[in-house]
Write a protein that binds this DNA or RNA. Structure first.
Lengths: 210, 210, 210, 210
DNA sequence: CATGAATGAGATTTCATTCAT
DNA sequence: AATGAATGAAATCTCATTCAT
């Protein structure tokens, strides 16, 4: 596996046609990485699925690794944006959590490969992998701090809570969406959320429960 | 002269010397798979670390995949046994959870590679990967059902709760043990556990909290 | 990072340069398989003789086996075509046999490796091996039937005769061309042919003998 | 494939037990070489089929090649002896041929692997391979010369005839016994023999035909 | 006599990447 | 911008053979 040495870093495409080709490659890569995993995925397969020649790949991407990382980062950015938009305008934090969970499950339902892609990233570039969760956690922490200060949530270490919540969402998503192939039934969703709600809101909070 | 008929499935070693060699290989494999991940790990590296010749590997294991799977299954079995022993004799379920979390974090602290190994398994053999969590979940579910029946825990779907708890433990372990390199500070541990405790125990339960 | 999904079946070369490379490989393979036999032949040796890099082989052929089979089938097709052309226009069947034997010996004289290649095929792909002789026999049978119906040849089971003739030619070719390195002297050729002629033509046939 | 260097050439077994083990290995080797061919056959497989440990092989045989050659030579010797015995006491040469063909087909019927073993030999040790046919041919030549001198057979080059006959027998054996799995039907046998008979015996010979 | 552990050379195959066109 | 031929390093796996017990 020669490490690129000379060769200029590919520039962004200048023409619309170039832009299109680049996107075809990204889409194909999402499929292939999602199904085969990073190491088993091959550039040939990606280019074939994209319908271009092998050499074309290196017109747009520096390496296999670089397209993978771009993919992970794009997915992360999109997921966070989706969540932000989903909860915009909601005024109780607990409701934010409910809608957030809902939106998260929805997002991974329609990006079936994202799970595997993100997880593979741990082995491809640890830094990028951590950044993915670190940024996600940062978003949570901000929201949680506010809710704790306002007394909506118990006063607990916000980072601990953030990772706990991400863990719950991740595993529930894996169990039902990845393995079952569909979003969890309402009964499961409600119970997961109840656990979260009781865990987060102070006993005396009248709004608690649903 | 390859293109063989799958040759001969390696038998268990007949002598103590053989047993020793096999173990050296397993130990080396745990290191190498843990550091490099399945695909990047190479048999050469494993045998070098084990201090045997390359061909010796195939005296004891059928393939790279087979030693990996043996490793994952052994780790799973050991972890479950450790947890079982840790909580034996404890009579309140909440305390079981606390001790269980403690033991889990302890276990992965001393098997630093287990995390990555288990996660890689998703890409190596999906069935084995699912079995790992399915069995773990089954253990939880049994305990949770009892606690719910006795009124110690809220009545929620036990499988949902099992995966939620595994998710919490997994992510907290990742964040502190994997990334930080040490067990989470008491403050974090307590807050994670508080979240779980409030989430699980009914409001009126006098034993709740710590 | 092997353990792939059979990757991509090599397409026919798109450029003249590619076609040239593919042919160089086929030529080299004929030499190497002919001298070493299938199993002892190695891809390295073939590519070295062809003057290309090892990986280039797999640009044009799926596997060692596939190039070998292509070789056998090509040889069979060429031999049959050569025989067909050699006897075209000849009107007595006995003369056809004489010219055919001549042409056969000539063909293997100038394809010194063909013998060993075809024989190895029995161990590489039995079906291809049988097809080689089955097709050859079919050609014979057609001609023999006609000659028998016209009374030129004795009425004998045509398939039996076809295999007997192929056996004679094969063994005579082996004894003189393969082992001696040159075509059998006239005296041998004539006696072999006499045996065939007397065996095939009815006693009263005035044209019999030479 | 290391070539043996030191290590003493294995002596013939001293005990009856040793003799038994050696024979078990030879029998197993006949099976394995016959089914897999020389190169694909492995010592492990032979020893497993023989029910002994891998190392035991080298107590009795110097190498893979040496057991193979012993096998070929034994088969050749046995075949020739069988033919000799079958035709002993027969006084017309044509009848000798008929009975010889019969006996040949019978022999290979009951040594199903012999065909492939002998053919593989061409690629293992050319000298042994030629000796196999050379000796067989020598037997024929002797008999043919006599028959020709006595006027029983046409005067043709005896070696040419010998190889032609061996070719016929070989190919007929291949077509019916190897491929069909049973001896050729009487009709085929008779026609093959008729071809031979008419080819060999002078026209005026009153005994000709059947 | 017999065993089974150990070796290491060698074989096929894959694939990211480069480059001339 | 796009192509497809070519490369060569590296990976997994096989197996004849040796050796200590």
């Amino acid at each position: 596996m020669p490490e690129s040495n000379s060769s200029v870093a590919p520039a962004k495409p200048a023409t619309a046609r170039g832009q299109r080709t680049r996107n075809k490659l990204l889409d194909a890569a999402e499929q292939v990485f999602g199904i085969q995993g990073y190491d088993r995925a091959s550039i040939v397969e990606i280019t074939q699925l994209a319908g271009v020649a092998q050499g074309t790949f290196y017109v747009y991407f520096e390496s296999k690794k670089s397209i993978f990382i771009e993919l992970v980062e794009t997915l992360g950015t999109n997921l966070r944006a989706t969540l932000r938009e989903a909860v915009a305008g909601i005024d109780t934090r607990l409701e934010v959590e409910r809608v957030g969970l809902e939106a998260f499950l929805q997002f991974i339902s329609s990006h079936e490969h994202m799970y595997k892609i993100v997880r593979q990233c741990e082995f491809v570039d640890e830094e990028v992998y951590r950044a993915y969760y670190t940024r996600m956690a940062a978003g949570y922490v901000a929201g949680l701090k506010g809710a704790m200060k306002r007394g909506e949530f118990r006063k607990l270490n916000p980072e601990a809570v953030a990772y706990a919540l991400m863990g719950i969402f991740d595993f529930v998503g894996m169990r039902w969406i990845l393995w079952e192939g569909k979003k969890p039934p309402k009964r499961i969703f409600d119970d997961v959320f109840a656990l979260v709600a009781y865990g987060l809101t102070p006993d005396e909070d009248p709004r608690r429960g649903k």
